[in-house]
């Protein structure tokens, strides 16, 4: 924690304009409070409980669980993703509120891992969702998971954790990729129509 604070202070000194300070502060609050939606997809699900409980205690870094996607900031995908699961994951991701982040655990979301030739798992998660941090390993231990969170925090503080913006800007690409595997079982229109328009606001 002390190291982090020193780093923060150093960063703060470099900022010049008041708006930059506000942005920095907002990012600081965002990185200090991360509500996590742990989506236990594969074998990595077992790594999440020790991460948040007494042994590794993620709460000291401001990481705590959220019950529904509406409340969550980050979705943690812990392992391989079957096509069926991916559909739910996309649904959950789209229901989260910006800014939102994705952490993928293990090698399976990176390149398929040991399921490289499976008929019903996807091989490369970032074709379908914008992944902010991937933690390699099969499976990564809780230390590595926490390291992943630290990397995410750094990214947030730098203002670079903008996967959500990427998803919104390149929605056509992502939706086309999703359509390739879902085919006619694609998610219904109401789940993502608003990505293609501005969406109402008041």
């Amino acid at each position: 924690m002390d190291n982090l604070n020193k780093k923060d202070k150093a960063q703060l000194k470099e900022l010049k304009s008041p708006m930059a300070v506000v942005d920095w502060a907002v990012n600081w609050f965002r990185k200090q409070s991360i509500f996590m939606l742990a989506y236990g997809t594969g074998c990595g699900a077992i790594e999440i409980p020790p991460t948040v409980t007494a042994r590794y205690d993620a709460e000291r870094f401001g990481v705590r669980g959220a019950a529904t996607p509406r409340q969550a900031d980050v979705i943690v995908l812990s392992g391989y993703l079957a096509v069926k699961t991916l559909k739910r994951v996309i649904r959950t991701y789209e229901q989260m509120q910006e800014p939102k982040y994705v952490i993928a655990l293990g090698s399976c979301p990176i390149n398929g891992g040991m399921y490289w030739d499976s008929y019903n798992t996807i091989k490369q998660l970032d074709r379908y969702l914008p992944v902010d941090v991937t933690v390699a390993g099969c499976m990564p231990r809780p230390e590595a998971v926490l390291e992943g969170f630290m990397a995410l925090k750094d990214k947030i503080q730098r203002g670079e954790a903008e996967g959500a913006r990427d998803y919104r800007d390149n929605i056509e690409k992502y939706k086309n990729n999703q359509k390739e595997i879902f085919g006619d079982k694609m998610l219904p229109g109401y789940t993502c129509d608003w990505y293609f328009s501005d969406g109402g606001s008041f």
Partner: peptide
Amino acid sequence: RVGPPLWQNVIDNIKLFAK
């Protein structure tokens, strides 16, 4: 456990307003 800092709730609250 060690637990979060004392002001964690304030941080959470401000973060929610900063969404």
